[in-house]
Amino acid sequence: MSYHDHSDHQYAKNIRAGAPAAFKAFLAFDQAALSGSDKVIPRKYTELMAVAVALTTQCAYCIEAHTKAAHAAGATQEELAETTMIAAALRAGGSYAHGFMAMKFFDQAEQASVA
């Protein structure tokens, strides 16, 4: 059994049936954010940002859809590679920054055990 099957998107109908108002609102928001008529950011850059977010959230479906959309919008393989490395750096940076919290909690635990 695979957790991610390409055909899993067929289950969107279950979400749509179970929460129709929220589903409709989500689709409208998604459409407005990614390709609304009032967008200032060019489509290629919107899609590259979407790829970066998809890489950090590890959404396989989003990675596929937005990579293909970025290609269609004129993104190059080099731009996709740079986007990938930017996403990796920020993901790693997040771990590093959260390490500050871990160090703080360790210090707090250390101080509590001494008291």
Rank of each mutant, 00 (worst) to 15 (best):
R16W: 00
S113K: 09
S7W: 01
T67K: 02
A25Y: 11
H71F: 08
H66V: 03
P42L: 07
A54C: 14
A97I: 09
A69W: 04
D8L: 00
H4E: 06
D30I: 04
C62I: 05
A89L: 03
A25F: 07
Y96G: 06
A21C: 00
D107Y: 06
K13A: 08
E78L: 10
L90A: 15
Q111A: 15
A70V: 00
A72C: 06
S95N: 12
A87G: 13
S7I: 09
A32D: 11
G74F: 11
A69Y: 04
F29M: 14
A75K: 01
G18P: 07
K104R: 06
A52Q: 02
E64R: 14
E110H: 11
A112F: 04
A89C: 06
A25R: 10
D38Y: 07
Q58G: 09
M101G: 12
K39W: 10
E110M: 08
R43F: 03
E110N: 12
Q31G: 09
P42T: 12
L80T: 08
Q108T: 11
H4I: 03
L80E: 06
G74H: 13
A81L: 08
S35F: 15
E78F: 10
K44Q: 11
Y45K: 05
D8G: 05
M1Q: 01
A75N: 01
H66L: 02
A28W: 00
Y96E: 07
A22P: 00
D107E: 14
I15H: 03
T56R: 06
A102L: 15
A102C: 14
K44L: 08
V53L: 15
A102G: 15
K24I: 02
S95V: 09
L80V: 15
E79S: 13
T84K: 05
A60H: 13
R16M: 04
Q111M: 09
V114D: 13
Q108E: 09
L48V: 00
L90G: 13
E78N: 08
Q10E: 10
E79W: 02
H71P: 01
A65R: 08
G93T: 11
L90D: 06
K104A: 12
S2E: 06
Y3W: 14
S113H: 06
D38Q: 15
I15S: 05
M1K: 04
P42M: 09
K104F: 00
A19K: 04
L27W: 11
A19R: 09
C62W: 01
F105A: 07
A32M: 08
L55D: 00
C59P: 05
L34Q: 09
S113D: 06
G18I: 05
Y45G: 05
A89D: 01
L48W: 02
E110G: 03
S7R: 02
M85E: 09
P20G: 11
I63L: 07
Q31R: 12
H71W: 08
F100H: 07
A75T: 07
E64C: 10
M85S: 08
Q31H: 15
A50I: 04
R43L: 06
L55S: 03
Q108N: 12
A65S: 14
S95W: 07
Q77N: 15
A73W: 02
H9L: 12
